[in-house]
Design a protein around this nucleic acid. Structure first.
Lengths: 365, 365
DNA sequence: GTGAAAGCGCTAACAT
DNA sequence: ATGTTAGCGCTTTCAC
């Protein structure tokens, strides 16, 4: 399985041969300071000299030491990002947007994963703060109770992503998840479904999922429908979707609409319905959340909610940049888009491919 | 859209109120040094005193300054990770495994994304090195020409993930992608398909995808089949899959087997085939790559190759940890697993759900 | 425009 | 077991 690779591998971390500003300065015949300025403020160095220094820099393959630089200048240009999960591609596009936006502003990103564990989140925030980051970004608005005070105490810009609520540490950029749940249920009602259930995996600390569930339940109650909920305290998978469907059908065989907490859950639900001979969308309507890349390839194509992930990430990056430059904290709420496909098209059950996208829906004030 | 959040937000980054070792020491009535040791080597401080110091640490909410610590000690406990993409969830599970393994070894992770751009990779490697990381991890084995020398010069452990080849910078943990392509084509041949094409999005610098394609083509040639290739120079999407299928059918209407570069491409291909009235798997066999969570929910369920992503990430973390402790560089090649479902079950086209998993296949020597 | 000197906050010898 | 003394490599005044 594993065998040594002798050549090309330093037997032990090489006997410290790092190039410092000092070496560059000596080689270029100037002071350390001048080299430093040639790097950070080229305009303050005579063009001719500057080019000379740059040549030496290149020749010696100089890599600055940001630990030293950061220590001396008290600002680092890294942004600490704490996410609750890297899997399920739930946040990938958002993080990518955030990272891209920050990079354009000259900031690096340090990513850590709390796996939906508050204790872990606290630990990670402490670790990141120990790097004296220029700012911090966190997923969600529900944190370990000590996190907000720690962050506030650090005196740096903070942005909370993905979810929005009433209280904010600093800036917030996200969606109203309760509104997503309402929109899902609302769409099924509009399509004429009446006996509607919420199905999905809801992890103990996934507050976003809980809010979607609550939003769905609330709307159903308002409209006089008895809300049904069938969840499990774990992450969503297709198999879980099918399992929950089973339980649901046992409890309520007359169900005709299913709001899923994620597209992946919906995939399993669709598979289960087909196996059990229920026709979608004629007998049962199904709507997911997330706009998974496979949703449009299901049979029937799955209706879902598309969260503007990249936009949220980019807006969060913009918020950080603004704040670093002394601007105000920002609160921005994006709207998820309803993608109505065949899986909820009870009226026009023969309509065909159903790739059409409905107009953008306002989720909540 | 964006409005100010006055309360709770520091008008400007607070007037520097950071707690240093000095403050803790004064409060605890000991020297700076003793506090430092109480943190890093608790055993060297009298238990009683230690508890006292810990209380003060807690009371003052001390957050160490790792810049200073790293500068002084010359080791940081961060591992720089450069990935080519965060999207498509292609690497998420692998990165998660890597990160988890490193965290267990007390190492933090700094993630950056090169978007498949070599120039960007070089830039990112330089930036990461400027943080004096304990080790570096990179996706793939084809790098910007200056990357290996930079890394070697840094004298730290390096691990290349996902792909394996003949030359390594230091450690390598991955899969043989050419072998994956061969296995895909081989499976279709075994099932009796003969007129086989490779279809997919192959980004200019996605060498893994290129290797899978080449492996597929090579095997077909060896077996006396004329290899067909229909690719586009971009990332894979379901829509692209359907587009490429169109072109393929135009060029070779008698095609009966399709090797897809990714499951997402396969989703589009399946949708396209069904729309065009071709029966899968009776008339055409389709196999994907990646074991996307939706693959088992397609109609028919999609056969695919499952790469051991988490295992690769964990093994890479182990390699880094070993190497940091002075161990040898490691080379480890994992095997992708063939997941045979209905989309290639020409023989047993009536077999039903087809969720069964074939035995593990050796991909290459 | 350039150089000299003084730290940034911490760790690592060495004393004690 | 604890304190003292030097730096780590860089940035930042402040002279020149």
């Amino acid at each position: 399985m594993a065998d040594a690779v002798p050549e090309s591998a330093p037997a032990a971390p090489t006997a410290r041969r790092t190039v410092r500003l000092k070496e560059v300065a000596a080689r270029a015949g100037v002071s350390i300071n001048t080299v430093s300025r040639a790097i950070r403020a080229p305009a303050t160095v005579r063009p001719e000299l500057r080019r000379h220094i740059e040549a030496v820099l290149d020749e010696l393959d100089y890599v600055p030491n940001r630990l030293a630089g950061g220590l001396a200048s008290a600002h680092t240009g890294v942004v600490g990002v704490v996410v609750t999960s890297l899997l399920y591609s739930e946040f990938a596009a958002m993080i990518e947007g955030l990272q891209g936006g920050l990079a354009r502003g000259g900031l690096s990103t340090m990513l850590a994963n709390s796996h939906y564990r508050p204790e872990e989140e606290l630990r990670l925030v402490r670790t990141m703060l120990s790097w004296r980051p220029a700012a911090m970004a966190l997923i969600g608005i529900d944190h370990h109770p000590r996190v907000p005070e720690l962050l506030l105490h650090a005196g740096i810009p903070v942005v909370e992503l993905w979810e929005t609520g009433d209280v904010a540490i600093d800036s917030v950029v996200g969606m109203d998840h309760a509104g997503v749940g309402r929109a899902q249920a609302g769409h099924l009602l509009e399509q004429g479904y009446r006996r509607i259930a919420f199905v999905g995996g809801v992890r103990p600390h996934d507050h976003r999922a809980q809010r979607r569930r609550d939003g769905c339940v609330a709307l159903l109650a308002e409209r006089g429908c008895e809300p049904l909920v069938m969840t499990a305290a774990k992450g969503g998978t297709a198999d879980l979707g099918e399992t929950l469907l089973d339980r649901l059908l046992q409890k309520a065989p007359d169900i005709d609409g299913i709001v899923c907490n994620s597209d992946v859950i919906a995939f399993g639900v669709l598979r289960g319905l087909i196996r059990r001979g229920r026709r979608v969308p004629e007998q049962v309507g199904v709507i997911g959340f997330g706009d998974n890349e496979a949703a449009a390839c299901m049979q029937p194509p799955l209706s879902t909610m598309r969260p503007p992930r990249a936009e949220i990430g980019q807006a969060a990056a913009a918020a950080v940049l603004t704040r670093i430059e002394g601007g105000p904290a920002i609160r921005r709420v994006f709207t998820a888009e309803l993608i109505a496909r065949s899986s909820t098209a009870r009226e026009a059950a023969s309509a065909g491919t159903g790739t059409a996208t409905s107009s953008i829906r306002e989720i909540k004030s």
